[in-house]
C-alpha cells in the first residue's frame, strides 16, 4: 500500500510538472490574441457573461447572510453600528474573491475542461495539428486569458451585490441606520489593504483555476471516461488550490494589520 501511495505521489508530481511546462508553452501563444481579439472576446462571453447570473445570485444571498449573522453577533456587544464595516471587510477581503473563484471553478472551469477534453477525444485537436494550426494559441490561450481577466471583475460584482444584500437585511429589515451602515463601512474598509488585496487574490485565483481547467482538458485521456474524470479533477483541484492559496495569501497580506 505504501508503494501504491508512493507511485500515486510521483504520478501527481509528474502531472503537475507537465502542467507547469504546459503553462510555459501558453506564453508563446499570447501574441495571437493581439491579432485575433475576437477569439478572446468570444471566450470572455462564454466564461464571464455566462457565469455572471450565478455570481450575482450567490453574492446577494451571501451578503444577506452576512447582514443577518453579523447583526446577530454584533448586537450582543451593542456594536451593531459596525455592521457595515463587518460586511464590507468580509466581502472584499475574503468572500468576494474566494466564493467567486469556487463558483467559477464549478461552472466555468468544468465547462472549459469538458469542452477542451471533448475536442481532444473527438480528435479535433489532432485535426488542427494536421492542418498545421497550433491548437494552443488558437484554442487554449483565449480561454486561459479570458479566465484571468474575468475573475476580478466577477469578484468585484459579487462584493457589490453582497454589500447591497447586507444593507437590505441589516438596514432595511433589521433596523441598523442606513447612514451608519455605509459610513462604518467607509471607515473600516481600506482601499489598499482590503479592496486591492481582494483584487489581487482574485487575479491569483483566476490564474490558477483557469490553468488547471485548461490543462486537465488538454491532457485528458481521449475517451468519455477520461474526459469526465478530467472534469471532476479540474473542479476539485481548482477548488482546493483556491482554498489553500487563500490561506497563504491572507497570511502574507494581512499579517501586519
Amino acid at each position: 500500500m505504501v508503494r501504491g501511495l508512493g507511485r500515486a505521489g510521483i504520478a501527481a508530481i509528474h502531472h503537475t510538472g507537465r502542467g507547469g511546462m504546459f503553462l510555459v508553452s501558453l506564453v508563446g501563444g499570447m501574441g495571437m490574441m493581439v491579432r485575433r481579439p475576437r477569439l478572446l472576446v468570444q471566450q470572455i462571453y462564454a466564461v464571464g457573461v455566462m457565469t455572471l447570473p450565478i455570481i450575482l445570485v450567490a453574492g446577494l444571498f451571501v451578503g444577506m447572510m452576512l447582514g443577518l449573522q453579523g447583526f446577530n453577533t454584533l448586537v450582543g456587544f451593542g456594536a451593531e453600528s459596525s455592521l457595515g464595516m463587518a460586511v464590507g471587510l468580509f466581502l472584499t477581503r475574503e468572500l468576494g474573491p474566494v466564493l467567486t473563484a469556487l463558483l467559477f471553478a464549478g461552472r466555468a472551469g468544468s465547462a472549459l475542461t469538458a469542452e477542451i477534453g471533448l475536442m481532444r477525444a473527438t480528435q479535433q485537436l489532432d485535426a488542427m495539428e494536421m492542418m498545421a494550426v497550433d491548437p494552443l494559441p488558437r484554442v487554449v490561450v483565449p480561454r486561459f486569458l479570458a479566465g484571468v481577466i474575468v475573475m476580478p471583475l466577477l469578484a468585484a460584482l459579487f462584493s457589490v451585490v453582497g454589500l447591497f444584500g447586507g444593507y437590505l437585511v441589516g438596514a432595511v429589515l433589521l433596523g441598523v441606520d442606513g447612514g451608519t451602515f455605509w459610513s462604518s463601512m467607509h471607515e473600516g474598509v481600506d482601499v489598499v489593504h482590503d479592496v486591492l488585496a481582494g483584487v489581487f487574490k482574485s487575479l491569483v485565483f483566476g490564474f490558477v483555476v483557469t490553468w488547471v481547467a485548461v490543462f486537465e482538458g488538454y491532457s485528458a485521456i481521449p475517451t468519455t471516461d477520461g474526459v469526465s474524470r478530467a472534469t471532476t479533477r479540474a473542479v476539485v483541484t481548482g477548488s482546493l488550490a483556491v482554498l489553500g492559496l487563500d490561506y497563504v495569501l491572507t497570511a502574507i497580506m494581512f499579517s501586519e494589520v
Binding site: 470572455i44 455572471l52 457589490v160 479592496v195
Partner: peptide, 23 residues
C-alpha cells in the same frame, strides 16, 4: 454583452475602491 460585462465589472471595482474603501 461582453462589453457590458467588462464595463460593469470595472465600474464595480471603481465603486469598491472609491466609495466603499477609504479613498
Amino acid at each position: 454583452l461582453v462589453g457590458v460585462f467588462i464595463l460593469s465589472g470595472l465600474a464595480a471595482l471603481v465603486w469598491l475602491t472609491l466609495f466603499v474603501g477609504n479613498w
